[in-house]
Structures are given as C-alpha cells and as structure tokens.
Amino acid sequence: MKFLVCLKQVPDSTVRVKVAADGKSIATDGITWSISPYDEYAIELALEHKDGDPSTTVSVVTVGPARSRDALRQALAMGCDDATLVTAADTVGGLDVAKALAAVVKEAKPDVVLCGKQASDDDQGLVGPALAEALGWPHVGMLTKIAAVADGVELWREIEGGHEVWTAPTPVVGLVHKSAKEPRYPSLPGIMKAKKKEIPEKDLAALGVTPGAPRAEVVAMEPPPQRGGGKILKADGDVKALAAELARLLHEEAKVL
C-alpha cells in the first residue's frame, strides 16, 4: 500500500509563545520548529503499516516556507521513503494549501492520504477535508488505526466512550487523531539514511495554484490575561469570623456564591 502523509511544520510545543510586534502573529525569532503532533501520529500510523508490510511506501509532503525542509528531513529520519517540499509563504491560506496538496497527490497516486486532524498552531482543521473535497475522495476523521482489507481499508475512529470501525474504498483521505504507540524518534542510522535523500522542491505556480486573497484574516492576538495572586485569610483563633469573611469574599469578590 502506498501512503502519502501531509505534514505541517509548527512551533514546538515547548516554545513559550509570544505575540510579535505587529500584534497579530507570533514572534518566531529563534524558536524551535517541529512536525505538528497530529501529523506525527499520522506518520507513525503509516510507518506501523510499513513495519508490518515492508512493501508499504510512505511519502511525506508539506506546503510551507523553506524552513519546512527540516520537518521533512525529520520525517525521512523516522523512516519515511521520500519527501516533497512545496514552497509557499506562511500566509497562504488553508484552501490554497489543499489545492497544492491535491496536485501533489494526483501525481503521486497514493492509496491512502493521511493528515493530522488539525495543525497545532492555528487548530483550524481545514486542510484535510478541503483536500478530500478537491480530490473528490471520501474522507474519514478522528482515526486511531488503519488496516488493509480486501477492497479498501478499515478505519478506526475514536468516539465518545469507544470507537467506530468504518470501511472505505481506496483512494481515501484519513484525518488522524492518535496512534496506538507514541511516534517514534528519528534514529541515528535513520538520520544518516535521510541525509542521502534528495528532497525535491516545487512552488505553487508549478502546481498550477495561484494563491487567492485570504478569506479569513487574523486581526489581533493577545496573550491570556495574567492570573491575579491568591488571597490567604489569617486564622487568628476566631473560626466563625473567618468563615463569615470567607463567605463574604466568595460572594462579593469572587462572585461564586
């Protein structure tokens, strides 16, 4: 089976995010970038398939700025077979990203396209469904497991209190929620194998995509408000008075009673 995993490079989850001077984006100077966590799960699901069936191929693709190459290199080091970088400005919208990915998919002809269910930076969850729509393929979300069956794939979805099992013909787009195992680390031998692989680069124009004006725009970003300090009531013997004061504060200041 042939997998194509679409990934996005996002600020690492350990980065302490700060709002940039423009007030509507985050400061990216010197931050660590990573593969978005749900995309890592998608890679892991595909690689688990490859572990079980070595004839499986796993390709990865991303649409993003040049620094995204590092994320692809990391995916190759995890064990993916090949990678494609579609260079595009950070500001290109989800719909145009989906169109570019659709063009890559049409060329690569995978059986299964996997995306993380959403990227951890803007959490829009737009690209996966838009890609399926652009391709005219079925898509199933919240996946935790994929198994090959006679004429397609069996897809496990996480739902409240359990899971559903769906079947779908291939080709299909799957949106991944989690893998059973934590995504593997790139091993050192994997890193050296990845080093030897070329990562071809394409731009949007080559894929016939002209980015449109953004349909939605971030107008402002602000950090969550600072939490105020707690208040400690001194117990100086009169428990009754203390309880009365606590009740008063909860009612008048905290307004929870």
Partner: peptide, 14 residues
Amino acid sequence: TEEQELAQRTARDF
C-alpha cells in the same frame, strides 16, 4: 550540520 542537529534533537527528546 543538519544531521548533528537532528541527532541532538532525537537525544534531547528521548
């Protein structure tokens, strides 16, 4: 180098 950085990162995450 890119591979030294990746090695450092794998080791750091692990």
